[in-house]
Design a protein around this nucleic acid. Structure first.
Lengths: 132, 132
DNA sequence: GTAGATGCAAAATGTTTGCATGGGG
DNA sequence: CCCCATGCAAACATTTTGCATCTAC
């Protein structure tokens, strides 16, 4: 249940947004979510998408991956993992076979800092864009 | 020379912005730069800071490190290196003793993607904020 | 019935840009 | 002198918020 241990009520809209995010690997922006859900939810408004994304982020169900062209991109996969941002096609792609623990170890954190998340973004061109 | 091989002219303002960035480890936002330089350059305007940051980024002298609270943060250290963003004090701190090559290797990039930069951001609390 | 959720539109915020003027080469 | 750089303010784009209404519980 999305709303367990929160004061949030059940909401069909929020459920749709969350399910949509769970079912895509596109790391969409708020606007992309809005556009794709408008068909099913004709009354949906962009403000509601933003409000729900913020709530989902607060309860730890959604993360902000990175900003591409001034648009924040969202992901329902909250495990630390590596993303590749293709500067040619703009896609944000999961690199799931990266060894995130080895990467963390490489950061070699010695002092008393406490790390909650590691965020790794590779900037370059994706496989298909590199071919051309 | 900052302007070598470009059509940029020499500009005292741009030099000041670049020198300021070279002399700080704070990873300031455009507004922080603007505020700190206003004393020396009373006529400075924020638009000029943005324009020059963009130019410096284009010629590879400055990078955008990460976004903190919707403010882009800049760095004159263009080498790939790890940053820690303290969620408590908001500081962006260099982790220079990280092994960036090991981190890259951990990303285990197999396919034909071409990587230009790796961007690693640790989210947590810095040493001093963790003590309290 | 109370308090959270929504749509709508307005506001807020960070960044960019147009234009007239100033200044480097 | 030509064209880049600048200050200023207006414009822009994304995100947030106020308010009236609706709805979950």
């Amino acid at each position: 249940m999305l709303t367990a241990n929160t004061k949030m009520r059940n909401s069909a809209t929020r459920n749709s947004i969350y399910q949509y995010l769970c079912g895509t690997k596109e790391h969409p922006s708020a606007e992309m979510i809005f556009n794709d859900l408008k068909g099913d939810l004709p009354n949906l408004s962009l403000g509601t998408v933003y409000r729900n994304l913020k709530q989902l982020e607060e309860i730890g169900r959604v993360i902000r991956v990175t900003t591409v062209d001034n648009h924040e991109r969202y992901d329902a996969n909250c495990e630390d993992h590596v993303h590749l941002v293709c500067e040619r096609c703009g896609r944000v792609i999961d690199i799931m076979d990266a060894d995130i623990n080895a990467a963390k170890a490489a950061c070699n954190l010695s002092g008393g800092a406490k790390i909650k998340h590691i965020q790794i973004v590779l900037n370059g061109t994706c496989e298909s864009c590199s071919e051309e």
